[in-house]
């Protein structure tokens, strides 16, 4: 039996409201399938499942708000038999036979998911009009909720993470020239942004300095082999999200550009996936877009580092690193920042 629990979709999430199930009992699901849409205070998120199985029972009802970790549904693992698991009370079985209902196909509400007499009778009643999908939170409430969520995550960060901050002016003559030449030969829809070079250079530097990439949990650092870069994306209505581009270290710049464009589009349309929200291993912020020279970001827990990029001016950028002193020191942080700077000098190798 597989229990599908409401995952944490970020350090600032304590609960979520189920908007919609994308599956019904009996559906086969594969690892990575979207099974539900859950409203967090930041966005409506497509929640994926991480095991194969067959949906047996949906426990949480659309419209319900439940804490992170709540068992929302039960599934049968591949090869697991529904019959052997299904418990139907004798009275329910008898009544089901009278009504011509197959009790094996009902969602049980009794102990251990047992089908009760009530479940059978409920099923036999003429089907009521399906409940409308509960509306997402109105925009004004959403903005207030998002501010609260950001405040909670950033307060936790500043309370728990002893930050240190470093910055360095990185020459971008070579990167700018390379990008210009590259974009001149690319059709408009395939052009690259400098931000993609920043993201890739940061990911490659993480491979050299693994203490910048991973999570700090339960009093210990857990490095991550993959580099999932959380990209800070400001939303037009206010607030921000920092969903992940996965496995950045292995992706070519063209693929990264596609991923970034898609991520920005979906973040602004409020259609992110749970894995993107929950698993960035480091964050990159490119606040220079707004014209600022330097940004010193606040680390998004449980991550342990954040790389910031200011505005590109006179073919240079001020790059910064915010590091977690529980995991690394300024010396290693400086080497990490130096690696980002070095990697940006060889854009053709990114």
């Amino acid at each position: 039996m597989i229990e599908f629990k409401l995952p944490s979709l970020g350090a600032d999430m304590e609960q979520g409201k189920l908007l919609e199930w994308k599956v019904t009992p009996g559906d086969k699901v594969k690892r990575g399938d979207v099974v539900a849409i859950v409203d967090t205070s930041k966005a409506a998120v497509d929640v994926e499942i991480w095991q194969d199985g067959v949906v047996q029972e949906l426990i949480t009802q659309p419209g319900e708000t439940v804490p992170v970790g709540t068992v929302m549904a039960r599934l049968l693992a591949p090869g697991e038999s529904a019959v052997q698991r299904r418990k139907v009370s004798p009275a329910a079985r008898k009544r089901a036979a009278e009504l011509g209902v197959d009790p094996e196909k009902l969602a049980g509400t009794g102990p251990e998911g047992a089908v009760t007499l009530e479940d059978v009778e409920k099923q036999a009643k003429p089907a009521a009009a399906p409940a409308a999908v509960p509306a997402a939170v109105p925009a004004a409430d959403r903005a207030a909720e998002m501010r609260k969520a950001i405040a909670a995550a950033m307060s936790r960060s500043k309370r728990e993470i002893p930050h240190y901050y470093l910055s360095e002016t990185v020459p971008l003559e070579r990167a700018s020239a390379w990008l210009e030449a590259e974009n001149a030969r690319r059709p408009l829809p395939e052009r690259l942004l400098m931000a993609v070079l920043f993201i890739k250079a940061t990911a490659l530097a993480c491979k050299e300095y693994p203490e910048m990439n991973g999570y700090y949990r339960d009093g210990a650092f857990h490095p991550s082999a993959a580099v999932h870069v959380g990209v800070a994306i400001s939303l037009r209505q206010g607030g921000l999200v920092a969903p992940a581009i996965h496995d950045v270290q292995d992706k070519a710049l063209s693929a990264l550009m596609k991923d970034l464009a898609d991520l920005v589009k979906r973040a602004r349309a409020g259609s992110l996936r749970s894995s993107e929200m929950s698993d960035p291993t480091i964050t990159v912020t490119n606040l220079g877009e707004g014209g600022v020279e330097t940004v010193f970001g606040i680390i998004y827990p449980p991550q342990v580092a954040l790389a910031g990029f200011g505005a590109v001016r006179n073919k240079a950028v001020v790059a910064s690193v915010s590091g977690d002193h529980r995991v690394s020191d300024g010396h290693r942080g400086a080497l990490f920042l130096g690696a980002i700077a070095r990697l940006l000098q060889e854009p053709e190798k990114l």
């Binding site: 210009e180 052009r191 931000a195």
Partner: peptide, 23 residues
């Protein structure tokens, strides 16, 4: 931002069939 700008130019490119070099 630069992503919005690129999306804007791509949209103009597609609707008006003009090329807009970065230069």
């Amino acid at each position: 931002d630069s992503m919005d700008w690129l999306n804007f130019l791509v949209a103009l490119h597609e609707r008006l069939k003009v090329d807009i070099p970065e230069s």
